[in-house]
Simulated scan of single mutants.
Amino acid sequence: MPVNRNALIRYRTIDNCLRHKYKKWTLDDLIEACSDALYEFQGIDKGVSRRTVQADIEMMRSNKLGYEAPIVVVDKKFYTYSDKNYSITNIPLTNQDMQVLTEVADLLKQFKGFSHFTDVNEMISKLEDKIYVQKTAAAPVIDFEKNDNLKGLEFIEVIRKSIISQTALCITYQSFKARQASTFCISAYLLKEYRNRWFVLCSSHQRNAPLLTLALDRIISIEPDSGEAYRPNTKVDLSTYYSNLIGVTKSPKQSDCEVVFQVDHENAPYVITKPLHHTQKLLTENADGKVFSIRVVLNYELERELLGFGCRLKVLGPRILVKKIRENLRKALECYQEIPEKRPA
């Protein structure tokens, strides 16, 4: 059954609402959410009628689209899913869907050997695994790293659109160190992912404010219509801004340096097959292990990466980094100075 784009937007919006475990949704709430979504994605300023949303709910409950959504009403007022893990995005694929996806996967595989398309390799593997699971009803053979409890993912699309359209955003943000949230306007330039967390590189409209890298999971709210003019990036090359560091923490004027470290023979193969950074070089080998170098900015993420190897890795330079690593290890050792006595059974 063909479905128009506006209906799909409403279905997806209702689905997102009902998957929200920490809020109770009345029919009026769903109507407002659908109206907001149509305005955001389609520019439709006319609100959605009560009858339309009620019809959408009945359509999602039915098997006409294959959803058969377990939508129930609690306390004669609040809509929710009886199955807390349900989503319309998890419905089985039809045979026609499978045929199309198989053809797409075959087409994408042709680009695997080209360096310009290396970023699609993981996507192809995910797609092929999804097709295999659907066809055979077997367990997945690939388990990709994911975190379903990440916060802030709902802001990715609005930030992406603001970058493309070059419109300023007004955000309410609270860092882990701040006692209370603050509200200010930003011009966003780049979305960045690091270890399953998302960040946005932006400039604050506050006077003489430097470039900021803000974590999306610390954003409380975003107002797309800030009323302020967008400020284009004139400070950094976005294509290379993060290339000289591990993680996301740096300032525009911060320069990189050579970091030298030694890894014991047992763990050196792991560092060789999965380099800490694209600048990694093998310098030499001795009785204690292999010595490597990388050229990166000194930051918190680098320290955490190196400390993760524990006693298997020794930082040799620069001296300021050696001092920080030594201090971190000293504090860690202090945590284990007093080992509690074993309680009698």
Rank of each mutant, 00 (worst) to 15 (best):
T13D: 04
E327V: 03
K109Q: 07
V120Y: 06
S239I: 10
F261R: 02
Y86G: 00
Y39I: 07
A168S: 14
T273F: 01
K126D: 03
K253I: 07
A37E: 06
N147V: 15
F117L: 09
E228R: 00
Q54F: 01
K135N: 03
N16Q: 12
R319L: 05
V53Q: 00
A168D: 14
L150S: 10
V3G: 03
G289H: 00
T234M: 11
Q337K: 04
W198P: 00
L27C: 02
E266Q: 14
A138R: 13
E145H: 13
Q54I: 15
L150N: 09
D106Q: 12
S35P: 00
L216R: 01
I220C: 05
A7W: 07
Y39V: 05
V74F: 10
A209T: 08
C17Q: 00
V248L: 04
E58Q: 14
R197C: 06
W25V: 09
A55H: 09
V296N: 01
N328M: 03
N196E: 10
V104Q: 03
S115P: 04
T118A: 07
S243G: 12
P2D: 15
D29A: 09
T172P: 01
I164D: 07
G113I: 08
A105H: 08
K331S: 05
P2Y: 13
V141P: 00
A229R: 13
C202Q: 10
I320T: 14
G308C: 13
A168I: 09
